[in-house]
Amino acid sequence: MNVGLVQALLSGLLMGFVYSLIALGLSLIYGVMDVVNFAHGEFLMLGMFLAYWFSVLFRLDPLISIFIIIPLLFVVGVGVYKGLIKRILNGTRISQILTTFGLSVFMANMAMFLWTPNYRLAERTLTRATGDLPIFGVHVGIPEVIASLGSIIVFALAYYLIRFTRTGRAIQATSIDSEGARLVGINIDNIYAITFGLGISCVGAAGVLLATFYYIFPYVGTFFSMIAFATVALGGFGSVEGSFVAGILIGIIESLGGFFISPAVKYAIVFMTYMVVIILRPATGLFGW
């Protein structure tokens, strides 16, 4: 097989794990709360900038600061839920769309205002210095490998939390039938807050991991939002396992599109994938339940 193709497949796979983690947060929030978080990518941006500032101001490697940023973003997520999302849960569709969209516009431009539109790279990371890793004759950047391994670990932790803990079972119950969950004594409000915080932590963690090798700029979130929508549509809105597989697929579709057609249009291919999936299998994606 062609070395370039293997290279493209491998980098697509590595990026795919990160997409899975981003999509998990979106899918979780949708599945449990029935709210599409249009500001999802902006929380990724926030995670990236936090990692950047931790690395610049405190000389902390993103792989260390991630242990601070994940809880921090959980708190941010709970705060956003209590202050904003809670008020629109029973609102109309358009008010839900506009609210999370307004949040995304606000966050992206606030970042623009505070941190200028400059492209940045996190400095002094342990991971950057170590360069390439040759595997079977192709080269992959060690930051990419670490980011995808990190994404798998965080995904696995979130999966464990959702599937096997008491809180996770309450989240699942709420997702299936919130009224029923309320009747058996689950505090729905707390579950929503935890879910939102968890979703934001996941996407923020992906942001921190991306910050080790990806450009950081205020509008970075909008592209990742679209990719996350495509991933979640493919995996089925609300499906945890679907997010994982779909993330990998989207990563591979993107890099193969870049390889076979042109890197300039690879996102167009991802967006068209979204269109095709949403039209052919609107409600369930490929693996929806």
Partner: peptide, 22 residues
């Protein structure tokens, strides 16, 4: 210096409108 400030305002206005007066 005010790059994006109009959009920040928009973001706030739209959230307020959506929450308070859809």
């Amino acid at each position: 210096a005010g790059r994006g400030i109009d959009l920040i305002l928009y973001g706030i206005i739209i959230m307020l409108i959506a929450v308070v007066r859809p």
